[in-house]
Simulated assay, not measured.
Amino acid sequence: MERLEGCKGCTESVKVTPEKLERLIAIAVKGRTAVSDQEYDRRMDMCLSCPALQYGTTCRYCGCLVAVRARLQDSICPFPVVPRWC
Rank of each mutant, 00 (worst) to 15 (best):
D41S: 15
A28M: 04
C47V: 00
V66K: 01
E12C: 11
D37A: 13
C77Q: 06
L53V: 02
E22S: 13
Q54N: 11
M44N: 05
D41G: 08
C62L: 01
M44F: 06
P51F: 10
L65R: 03
L48Y: 08
C64Y: 08
C62K: 00
G31P: 11
S75P: 07
I27D: 15
R32S: 12
P78M: 01
E5P: 10
E39I: 10
M46L: 15
E5T: 11
K30I: 01
Q73V: 07
T58N: 12
A67T: 06
C77V: 02
Q73A: 15
G31V: 07
G56V: 08
Y61L: 05
S13I: 09
L53Q: 05
F79D: 03
E2A: 13
E19C: 05
P80M: 07
W85V: 07
R32K: 15
C59F: 04
A26E: 15
A28S: 11
L48A: 05
L48G: 02
C62S: 03
R60L: 10
V68K: 01
G63A: 06
L48F: 11
M1R: 09
K30G: 05
D45H: 12
I27F: 09
G63H: 04
G31D: 10
S36T: 10
P51I: 09
E12T: 11
C7Q: 08
P78D: 04
C64D: 07
E2F: 11
I76C: 14
Y55C: 09
E39P: 02
E19F: 03
I25A: 04
G9K: 00
D37F: 06
C7N: 13
V81D: 15
P78V: 00
P51W: 06
R71D: 04
E22Q: 14
P18T: 06
A70M: 07
L72S: 05
K15N: 13
K8W: 05
R23A: 15
G6P: 00
S13N: 12
V82P: 05
C7I: 13
T58K: 10
C86K: 15
I76D: 14
M46D: 09
T57S: 13
C77I: 00
V16N: 03
V81P: 01
L24D: 14
Y40T: 06
S49H: 10
I76Y: 11
T17E: 07
M44S: 06
S49R: 12
G9T: 00
M44H: 00
D41H: 12
K20C: 12
T58F: 07
P83C: 02
E19T: 12
G9H: 01
C47Y: 01
T11H: 09
R43K: 07
R32H: 14
C77W: 04
E22D: 14
R42N: 13
D41W: 09
P51L: 09
L53I: 01
L53C: 01
A34E: 13
A26K: 14
M1E: 11
V66M: 04
V35F: 03
T57H: 12
A28C: 04
V82C: 12
V82Y: 14
C7S: 08
V81Q: 14
C64A: 12
E19P: 06
